[in-house]
């Protein structure tokens, strides 16, 4: 599940084959350009074809990604990317489905779907471009914004602690959890490819700077570092690591063993697989 290979003898596609002719409207220097590159690299690495892939998004700067690829795309309403992707995957389980979102779209207005997509464990790859700000509406605090970040909407900061998406994902049942950094497109591509290969719901949180409203995030390049230890499959150990990490640990942080959501017809659910879900 997840990994697919082209027919023998078919020519391999290059990342550029996954990029559409549309010129992105992101600000110069936006981290999302690199995420787009990383996604196209990952799709090429996986030897997929554009027609094997669907990219689903909601609303926000990050959610423009589908139109910039040559894959099937769906640009939905604010916060609803995950349920739309769930419907698409249910109808076409043969497609590799990427879901693109941001910290506003995915963690606040669409936050509830995040919990239940993790629980449902459908074979989706959820890529959240986190820049700790609402960029499209021009600089309001999002759930991952630091409590003391000052903005017009919340001068002096919201005073609210940040949302911790990786811990939430783990607690909700996501089967694969990684953190990537857009400034390292090759590393980001490798993580996305690994997320696609892993069965079930895979979550890749990408630190993707907003140079317009959060110019200080340019410093992220000096702050990110590889995760010091290999990914664990033990949720308890992962929880401790995720709760105590510094937010700049990059790499695969959890690889679970829950079997992916099985279709009612043609599913391959076994007693062992069901028992495994309860242990996970």
């Amino acid at each position: 599940m997840g990994q697919r290979v082209n027919a023998p003898g078919a020519p391999m596609l290059a990342p550029k084959d996954f990029k559409s002719d549309y010129k992105p409207v992101w600000c110069p220097g936006c981290g999302d350009y690199s995420v787009l590159s990383a996604i196209t690299k990952a799709l090429a690495m996986l030897a997929l074809k554009p027609e094997n892939v669907a990219v689903v998004s909601g609303i926000g700067c990050s959610s423009r990604i589908p139109a910039y690829t040559t894959c099937y795309g769906f640009h939905g309403v604010h916060g609803r990317a995950l349920p739309v992707a769930t419907g698409l995957k249910a109808a076409r389980p043969d497609l590799t489905v990427l879901v693109a979102s941001g910290d506003g779209d995915g963690y606040s207005i669409g936050g509830n779907h995040f919990l239940h997509a993790c629980r449902r464990n459908l074979d989706l790859t959820y890529i959240v471009m986190d820049n700790h700000v609402y960029g499209m509406t021009k600089g309001q605090p999002s759930p991952t914004t630091e409590p003391d970040w000052s903005s017009k909407l919340a001068p002096g900061g919201t005073g609210l602690r940040e949302f911790h998406p990786l811990v939430i994902a783990l607690a909700s049942g996501a089967n694969f959890i990684a953190r990537a950094y857009s400034g390292d497109p090759n590393g980001c591509a490798a993580l996305i490819a690994e997320a696609v290969r892993h069965p079930g719901f895979s979550f890749v949180e990408v630190l993707s700077p907003c140079v317009t409203f959060r110019p200080e995030q340019r410093e992220w390049k000096t702050m990110v570092h590889p995760a010091p230890v290999a990914a664990t499959d033990d949720p308890g150990r992962a929880a401790r690591r995720l709760m105590t990490d510094d937010g700049f640990n990059v790499g695969v942080l959890y690889k679970g063993k829950r079997p992916a959501y099985a279709r009612a017809n043609g599913g391959n659910q076994t007693v062992e697989a069901l028992a495994c879900q309860f242990r996970a």
Binding site: Y134, T137, S151, K152, L153, P155
Partner: peptide, 15 residues
């Protein structure tokens, strides 16, 4: 919650 074209109103009030 921010949404164009309303956001400037609540930003003004926030300040």
């Amino acid at each position: 919650y921010p949404i164009s074209p309303q956001t400037h109103i609540v930003e003004g009030l926030g300040e």
